[in-house]
Computed example of a mutant assay.
Amino acid sequence: MAQDHAHDPRVDALEADNARLRRLLNASGASDGLRHGLRDTMAMLRAVLRLSADTAESVEGYATHLEGRLDAIARARISLDMSGGISMHSLISDELMVHLIREGDQAELAGPTIRLRPKAGQVMALAVHELCSNAVEHGVFGLSKGKVNVVWSVDTRDTMQPSDLVLTWKETGGTDVAPPTRRGFGMQVLNDMLRYELNAHIDLAFEPDGLRCTMRLPLVQRIGSVIDASGSDETGVPN
């Protein structure tokens, strides 16, 4: 499959569109923020296209999974365009609902109000999509008793260092859970993309009753902030 898509025409077309978009934005005098945001999104789309091609086992699988991944990025992008950030809770609950998993039924979510910045929001949306898809196709969401508990918190261990955002995705209700036999797209997103883009440390444990995935990443300004009850972030700037 990887050989068939070494020069995927969709990737070539996307790169050409990206070049045209840069020229148009430069010519129109678009703001630096707009240009930067669009460049980040286009770069992620190219990466998703290439990596999906490299890890797909069939053309049908490539097309099906690619559509879901692009949709996840698009949903995050819509929220980001509307408000400039995306809520961690909304990001996760919306992705679960796409897979017909309702909070309070097969999913429990808990954590402080975290507002993710655009790039971090898109990367996290893709990671959550992969966790959901894996739970539907290979994990606990295909079982009557299957559930997931998603908890996130802010860990301030050292006042001289940035706080850490810690998120744990824990599946329960499974049986005989085993590590995958191949390193697919989802594993590369969790192990490589999150580390590279967000400086995240990822711990994956295939426990008997389901997958446990723990992400720890620095909650610096480019990634996001905690929103208090008044709607202000940790720097006191209203959102």
Rank of each mutant, 00 (worst) to 15 (best):
A110H: 07
T113C: 11
Q106V: 02
H99V: 04
K145I: 09
K147N: 10
V98M: 13
S144C: 11
V154S: 08
E137C: 08
E103A: 10
G104Y: 07
N149I: 08
D155V: 14
D94E: 13
V136A: 15
G104V: 02
K145F: 10
V128N: 09
E130S: 14
R102H: 01
R102I: 00
E108F: 10
L96Q: 07
M124L: 15
P118D: 08
N134T: 14
C132T: 12
E130P: 10
V154F: 07
V150S: 10
A125F: 02
A125Q: 00
T156N: 15
R102F: 00
V128A: 12
L100I: 00
M124Q: 04
Q122N: 10
A127P: 01
R115F: 05
H138S: 09
H129V: 03
A135E: 11
I92T: 09
S144D: 15
V140W: 03
N149Q: 13
A135R: 12
A127Y: 01
S144P: 13
L126P: 11
A120M: 02
V128S: 09
A120L: 10
K119S: 06
V136Q: 14
V151G: 04
D94F: 02
N134S: 13
Q106R: 13
H99C: 06
H99L: 04
G111F: 01
L91P: 02
E137F: 05
V140D: 07
G111T: 02
V148M: 11
P118W: 04
E108D: 12
A127W: 03
E103H: 02
I101N: 01
